[in-house]
């Protein structure tokens, strides 16, 4: 099936695909490291979900008659520069919590684009269900880690990573203004992009 897809939409789908692949590779490595238990189970499911999401996007692009755009930088790559290197599980989960919220926010914004291609709509809706679970399990795991690290310390990390994420997203919008404008043009008539 060949469907009319703008270059910007194709870039966006490819960007989602690449970010999901990056997430899968990262969580796969972490899941392989942690000892057996609930955390390992949830991390492995998370890894599997991210991997499936990258497949859904690959399938969607193909179904529409296109090929993914070749990309070299994922959203997550900018995280380490802005937020620093997480070195323990609590920090990894805290940074992921913020990232997952951003992902849901981004996909929700995309769903609001009027006249959204049904293949893109279906793919996002399928993925968002998993993303909701990601936030749930991470919140639960962070709660369990509060005994070791303290609730205040975890909240401070969450605030720190939220600030970094806002910076990264703002930068992404700025650097890709032309590509991402379609997400805002048709949803808001302010004439400018808002994060």
């Amino acid at each position: 099936m060949v469907s009319q897809l703008s270059d910007n939409e194709r870039w966006m789908m490819s960007f989602y695909r690449y970010s999901e692949i990056t997430g899968a590779l990262f969580f796969g490595r972490i899941a392989a490291l942690v000892p057996a238990g609930q955390l390992q189970e949830d991390l492995t499911k998370h890894f599997s979900d991210e991997s499936m999401h990258s497949w859904y996007w690959t399938q969607a692009i193909s179904e529409l008659g296109y090929r993914p755009v070749s990309l070299r930088n994922a959203y997550q790559d900018a995280y380490l520069e802005a937020a620093g290197l997480p070195v323990n599980l609590m920090e990894i989960l805290a940074i992921t919590n913020i990232f997952e919220k951003r992902v849901i926010g981004q996909y929700s914004r995309h769903l609001k684009v009027p006249g959204l291609n049904p293949v893109i709509k279906r793919t996002i809706e399928r993925i968002v269900e998993d993303e909701k679970w990601h936030i749930q399990w991470i919140n639960k795991a962070l709660k369990n880690l509060a005994e070791k690290y303290g609730e205040d310390a975890i909240n401070k990390k969450l605030q720190k990573y939220k600030k970094a994420d806002d910076e990264i997203y703002g930068k992404l919008l700025q650097e890709n203004q032309d590509r991402l404008q379609f997400l805002f043009d048709r949803t808001e008539n302010t004439g400018e992009m808002q994060s």
């Binding site: 490595r29 290197l85 070195v87 323990n88």
Partner: peptide, 13 residues
Amino acid sequence: SFLLIELMLNLQE
């Protein structure tokens, strides 16, 4: 960087 995270987790363990 992702390998560095793994390295740190590994050393702590």
